[in-house]
């Protein structure tokens, strides 16, 4: 049993758009994330293939170092601390960056050799993006539709579908400058969906959102993963925990882990500890790179939670790990420095 709480609800696993892909089973459960883990491995219907990808910037920084991945339908999580190479990988997938070496293929099309063809199949939501403040939501989406070469009737239909899908269909006449952070992110997703892309690439989409918006956005991403490949780059462990059935942990341009979140959690089993510390030990505990959290209970006592191969203190007891613990165990102190949402 995994130690993290999945969202409660109903989900139907993806049947796959291509006839040669094995249909996945419809599952109705109170624990969709757990059920997603039971789905077939995405490797079976791999559509995005990344081979030995390396990227070294002109200043010598190695952003990606021999990254190889095969990704199937559903939401795929790219987790890692800042500077891990997530955005570089995302920008290569979005045809914005050219790698130093390696190969990327989507549905058999070489992303590097035929970027224009791939662009017709990619929806991209950058980490930081702007809108034209003097346009309304409808005008902006229509402009993006025109730039994507959609004909009038198709464009109107797609704009209507995309706004309904992300829940901003009532905001058509609102000026872009009046949108909240969550609404802007939804609009970003809507523009990425306009050409109905089989590959959706989203970079840190929940950064800066309030908890409620974050939750809604995770559910939206999961819905979008039905029938398409969604690559979600994030440094928020909970984004991956709630949205992804398959993930990698990137660190300094290398893949540290590849698999289901539950497999990563299993790595921290028997290595997650809690123990009480005095208020004097608080600062010392914070220096420990293995520390996950320190919480203060109702009696004013501090309880530290850390990951270690062996019992860190005589009074420490073993606890059930969660994805966050496993991530800290893998990445160390650099992961702890992140906002873990």
């Amino acid at each position: 049993m995994v130690g993290y709480e999945p969202p409660v609800g109903k989900t139907t696993a993806n049947p796959g758009p291509q006839s040669n892909q094995p249909a996945m089973v419809s599952i109705e459960t109170s624990s969709p994330a757990a059920s997603r883990l039971q789905c077939e491995s995405p490797h079976d219907g791999a559509r995005l293939v990344i081979e030995h990808l390396c990227k070294t910037y002109s200043n010598g920084v190695v952003a990606l170092d021999d990254v190889s991945l095969t990704i199937g339908e559903g939401v795929f999580g790219l987790l890692g601390p800042n500077g891990a190479g997530k955005t570089t990988l995302i920008e290569i997938l979005a045809t914005l960056l050219i790698p130093t070496s390696g190969r990327v293929q989507f549905d058999g099309i070489d992303v590097l050799r035929r970027p224009q063809k791939v662009r017709r199949r990619v929806g991209y939501l950058p980490q930081f993006f702007g809108f034209y403040p003097n346009l309304t939501v409808d005008q902006f989406l229509n402009l993006m539709g025109r730039l994507s070469g959609l004909r009038t009737r198709t464009r109107r239909q797609r704009v209507s579908e995309a706004t309904a899908m992300v829940g901003i269909d009532q905001l058509g006449r609102r000026s872009l400058r009046t949108l909240s952070g969550g609404e802007r992110q939804r609009l970003g997703i809507a523009q990425a969906l306009l050409n109905d892309p089989p590959l959706l690439v989203v970079d840190e989409p929940t950064s800066g959102l309030d908890p409620q918006e974050r939750l809604l956005f995770r559910n939206l991403l999961f819905d979008l993963g039905q029938g398409r490949v969604v690559v979600l780059s994030t440094h928020l462990v909970k984004d991956v925990e709630f949205s992804c059935a398959d993930m990698v942990v990137l660190h300094r341009g290398r893949i540290l882990f590849r698999g289901a979140p539950a497999e990563l959690v299993a790595k921290a089993r028997d290595k997650t500890w809690e123990f009480e510390i005095g208020s004097g030990e608080f600062d010392q505990a914070r220096q420990d790179s293995r520390l996950v959290t320190v919480v203060e209970d109702e009696q004013g006592r501090f309880r530290a939670r850390l990951v270690a191969d062996s019992q860190p203190a005589p009074r420490a007891w073993n606890v059930e790990p969660n994805l966050e613990d496993a991530y800290i165990l893998l990445v160390g102190g650099e992961g702890r420095a992140e906002d873990r949402g």
């Binding site: 979005a94 224009q116 702007g130 993006m144 994507s148």
Partner: peptide
């Protein structure tokens, strides 16, 4: 600067089209 260029560059419109636009 307005961070809209990335959205334009990912669009399917040709680079000639973008520049002329």
């Amino acid at each position: 600067d307005a961070k809209t260029l990335e959205l334009l560059l990912v669009c399917t419109r040709s680079r000639h089209g973008l520049l002329l636009m």
